[in-house]
Amino acid sequence: MAIDRRLFIKAVLAMGGLSLGGSWAWETRAEDSGRLIVIFLRGGLDGLFAFSPVADSQLASLRPTLARTVIERGIPLGSSGFAAHPACAPLAELFQTGELAFAPCAGSIDTSRSHFLAQDIFELGTGRTRGASGFMSRAASELGGAQDSISFTSAVPLAFRGTVMPEVAQFGTSRFNLPSGRFLEAIRQTHAGEPSGAALEQAIATEAAIAAALAEGAMERGADQGAAATSGFARVARNMAKVLRRNPRFSLAFVDIGGIDTHANQETILERALSSLSEGIVALRSELGSAEWQRTQVLVCSEFGRTVRENGTGGTDHGHGGLMLLAGGAVRGGRMLGGFDGLNDTRLNEGRDLPVSLDWRDVLGGALQASFALDEAALDRVFPGRPGRRLES
């Protein structure tokens, strides 16, 4: 009897993706097709914390607390003048093996500093705050049904709304909501001394830090728009990869995560968040396997960056230009994209933020073109009004 694909996906995801390693696979890959996975970080990531311009003499004075670790123990990123925070060590390794490129000053034309407007502008991909369709739906339409799309989110995101809708696969929240008291202690004792115990303690600490930040007003409620926190992303990424590996026709994929809107206590929160993000991207690489990774591009970005100067509460505020990562076996990595003009006030947007020197529509457009051989006219339909800057191949 025929198997309904949508119901089958929901069934295996309900079991945590554990059955996906079996013999089920209903499609074969179209020849010479690539894959694009978009990881959207809701909340405004401080990219300067993750990948820092340590060669710039002003970094230490602008960020006397937040830059200390990366200045002392950062991992150099080639000759770019940047170093990766130790929490991003797996990403630095991908850079060194030529499987990751980064743009420190990427973003959109939006200057509102509003999470919601900036997120809408990104997901619509038109440079506007309203529209009938998102860029991933339009990209799927341009592929004409030759490829399938999937969104690992709680609902269809704005990026995928339109005439071509994706499968929606939710792995569940990364938040534990564990009981307190004796029951929690019993669970901890059961896992003590095991790898699962260390993971449990890290997740509990991360959730506690996020809860404290919310209580103190250090993070804005609602900026995540329902996206799961980063603490569980490595698990989610492994399950995503299992789905994608067994079903190669899912060539467009989207996932969003949150917990990065750090107005205070940023070092504690972001160290854990970036560690989970890095582990998740490496988990994608491992679980996809060599053949699937070689046809994959993973784009990681946030709606905007943060202020260059740290504030008085150990955090940063909403900014403009931010970090974009492009990883994958199909990426020419080991390089910086879009340039960087330094931290001098005269080089900053409004004297406080990194400027936008690279429009993310051009990066997305380049990834779509490389993955699916879309021509310029098709890219203009996916991203109307895009600057059309070509990246070096």
Rank of each mutant, 00 (worst) to 15 (best):
R5E: 10
R6G: 09
S19F: 09
S23E: 14
E31P: 13
R42K: 15
R42W: 04
G44D: 08
A50K: 07
A50S: 14
D56I: 07
S57T: 13
P64T: 15
V70R: 10
R73Y: 08
I75Q: 06
I75G: 10
S80P: 11
G81P: 10
F82C: 07
C88H: 01
A89V: 11
P90N: 11
L91H: 09
L94Y: 03
E99Y: 04
S108R: 13
H115Y: 03
H115V: 04
A118V: 00
F122E: 00
E123I: 00
R128P: 00
T129D: 03
G131F: 01
S133W: 01
A139I: 00
D148E: 11
D148S: 13
I150F: 01
F152M: 00
F152D: 02
T153L: 01
A155K: 06
A159M: 05
F160S: 15
G162V: 07
V164S: 07
M165H: 06
M165E: 13
V168W: 05
Q170H: 13
Q170R: 02
G172D: 13
T173C: 04
R182Q: 15
F183P: 00
E185K: 06
Q189C: 13
P195W: 14
A199N: 13
L200C: 11
A205H: 11
A209M: 13
A212T: 14
A223E: 08
D224N: 12
D224R: 13
Q225N: 14
G232F: 08
R238I: 02
R246V: 06
R249E: 11
F254I: 08
D261G: 10
H263C: 11
N265D: 14
S276R: 12
G280V: 10
I281C: 02
V282I: 06
V282F: 01
A283M: 08
S290P: 00
A291Q: 09
Q294F: 00
L299D: 00
V300W: 06
F304W: 03
T307I: 02
N311C: 05
T313L: 07
T316H: 06
L323T: 05
L326V: 12
G329P: 03
A330V: 06
A330C: 05
L343Y: 06
D345K: 14
R352E: 13
D353K: 04
D353M: 05
L354P: 08
S357Q: 08
L358Y: 05
D362T: 04
V382Q: 08
R386Y: 09
P387K: 12
P387E: 10
G388F: 09
R389F: 07
